[in-house]
Simulated scan of single mutants.
Amino acid sequence: MIITNKLNLPSPFVSFAQRDYVYEPNEYRVTSLLKGIRETILERRHHKEIERDVSDMVWLLFGTAVHGILEKHQELGHELKEERIKVPIGDYILSGQFDLYNDETKIVTDYKTASVWKIIFGDFEDWRRQILIYCLMLRKIGFDAQGGQIVAFLKDHSKRDAKIKSDYPQFPVQVVKFNFTDDDFKECEEWLQARFEEIAAAEKLPDDELPICTPDERFNSGDKFAVMKKGRKTALRVLDSMEEAEQWKAENGGDEIVIRPGEDKKCLDYCAACEFCSYYKEKVVPNSERK
């Protein structure tokens, strides 16, 4: 990866950002499996061409710094800390590193930085999947992992909002817990098998034929349906579905319904490989320019 420093930030930021990860053949990290397959494959293929500025990596560096402080904790005899596990899945190697495992409580703990909106919306499926995979990997090497927790540090927490908003996180640190059943582990193993089969097929495809990331993987905000009136630039009403828009139009008037495509927030702001993605060039950029 090519690291730039457009804001001329201090050299320690640059040195930290320049730590490179070497992609091993047939080895995928847990975090890579949680991305869209197109994003994952493009990142691997174009790793040496991808350019990122240090300023865009500040929160990633902050999260790593938090890990660095917490990892100084001396683990007890029944704990595993910052361990990287590798297990075979078919013809591939699955690699994962959790922050802490307690063999007495059977709990995996992972530390993350996040936005308060993650907590407000209760959008934890990616965290749950990641912890579930870690637990499954531990079980495969002889530990009886049964659940996990995310300790989330909320980087944009507001004390003022915590005082006046009932649905706002009250503290800048939140713990989200997960318990797993035998059925969960069975489903996870099947999901991993299917995921690696998809990867094996995708590895044989050229860039522009890779499967498009799903709307969830693109952080798509969802299409909106605007009821418009001739001669008026702004919408009479914007609704979440065509059915709602048609009903509103029938009851309140309007001349047409215009579909406003949802914004692919991951593609726009968080995908390192977007410049090598045909979907991004053909769909995302034109839509963002219209807005």
Rank of each mutant, 00 (worst) to 15 (best):
residue 236 L to Y: 05
residue 200 A to Y: 05
residue 196 F to C: 05
residue 255 D to P: 11
residue 241 S to F: 03
residue 180 F to V: 00
residue 182 D to N: 15
residue 218 R to M: 03
residue 240 D to M: 02
residue 223 D to V: 05
residue 203 E to P: 13
residue 206 P to L: 00
residue 189 E to W: 00
residue 157 H to D: 10
residue 161 D to S: 05
residue 213 C to T: 05
residue 167 D to V: 03
residue 187 E to C: 06
residue 196 F to G: 06
residue 195 R to I: 02
residue 167 D to G: 12
residue 239 L to S: 04
residue 225 F to H: 06
residue 234 T to M: 08
residue 205 L to H: 13
residue 159 K to Q: 04
residue 252 N to H: 15
residue 193 Q to W: 06
residue 198 E to L: 14
residue 248 W to V: 03
residue 230 K to A: 14
residue 250 A to W: 02
residue 244 E to Y: 01
residue 179 N to S: 11
residue 215 P to A: 06
residue 262 G to T: 08
residue 165 K to G: 01
residue 186 K to T: 10
residue 259 I to V: 15
residue 167 D to F: 07
residue 215 P to L: 06
residue 198 E to F: 12
residue 225 F to L: 03
residue 213 C to Q: 04
residue 193 Q to D: 09
residue 180 F to M: 01
residue 188 C to F: 12
residue 183 D to L: 09
residue 262 G to A: 09
residue 206 P to G: 02
residue 220 N to Q: 07
residue 253 G to P: 06
residue 226 A to N: 14
residue 188 C to L: 08
residue 252 N to V: 10
residue 206 P to H: 05
residue 182 D to A: 15
residue 200 A to I: 02
residue 234 T to W: 07
residue 203 E to G: 12
residue 227 V to F: 11
residue 254 G to S: 14
residue 243 E to M: 04
residue 256 E to C: 09
residue 215 P to E: 08
residue 257 I to T: 10
residue 259 I to H: 02
residue 207 D to C: 06
residue 227 V to G: 09
residue 260 R to N: 13
residue 159 K to T: 03
residue 184 D to L: 10
residue 248 W to D: 01
residue 176 V to G: 03
residue 233 K to F: 10
residue 225 F to G: 00
residue 225 F to I: 02
residue 256 E to P: 00
residue 253 G to S: 11
residue 172 P to N: 02
